[in-house]
Amino acid sequence: MISALNSALDDIFGAMRLRRVWIALAHEDIGDQHRRTTLGPLWLLVNYLAFAGTFVFVFQPAGKDAAGYAAYVAIGLMVWFYLMEVISLSVPLFKREESFIEGTTLPLFVYVMRLTVQSAIRAGYAVAGCVMILLISGPPLTPAWLWSLAGLLLILLTTPALITVFAFIGAFFPDSEFIVGNLMRVGMFFTPVFWVYNGQGTIQTFAYLWNPFTYFLDIARIPILMGKFPSNAFAFTGVAAILMWAMALLLLGRYRRQVVFLI
């Protein structure tokens, strides 16, 4: 146990010393994805706005809830897309980095941080779009917004752990790529991303209360929409973050030297 922890921390500190590597690689990744396009990474903003706009337009309830719904969907989609992208890109992470893993001795956490930075940069464009929608649709700007910011930070801090855990799952069980892919696609409908929970139906209740993603969405959404601190959601997300990190350290410590033989 102790030796696993030491080994994991070795890997993580090694990666931290090489931070310029993953920062540089992440920027290259973003640059490559948008090379030769006119808008460049601004496409990420356009994508987000098109998606959020469609949802608002199609699902917006009539009457005075309308403004609140736009903000609800804007934040919900932002967080959901971020988590979905992070998870679906983590599962095949080690396979994707195969040539590096088989040709260099970089710590595995370098690849984890590379994806973290890349996802964070991409999410930045969605955040910009989200702020635009919030300013237009107009929930009042209150100090409670800071709790939403804290919520986003908590999600960001959980990201490397999430990536590590799913990357190891992907390395050990090749089938998981497809299972996770399907779950994430279906998951959108079982998570209150664009539908609002107000006590209706058993499936909705179940999907609201027992879906961990609900709480990740709530910590970013409730402070802005309701002007209050969602203590339950924060507590749940905090515990989930700690568990994820514990699992990530364990996997990294135990199995990091095996990954090269698995991919």
Binding site: E28, G31, D32, R35, S99, F100, E102, G103, T104
Partner: peptide, 14 residues
């Protein structure tokens, strides 16, 4: 230092 596969660590677009 090692030289295995010459393409490792090189980015095609850069």
């Amino acid at each position: 230092d090692a030289l295995f596969n010459i393409n490792i660590g090189f980015r095609r677009e850069a």
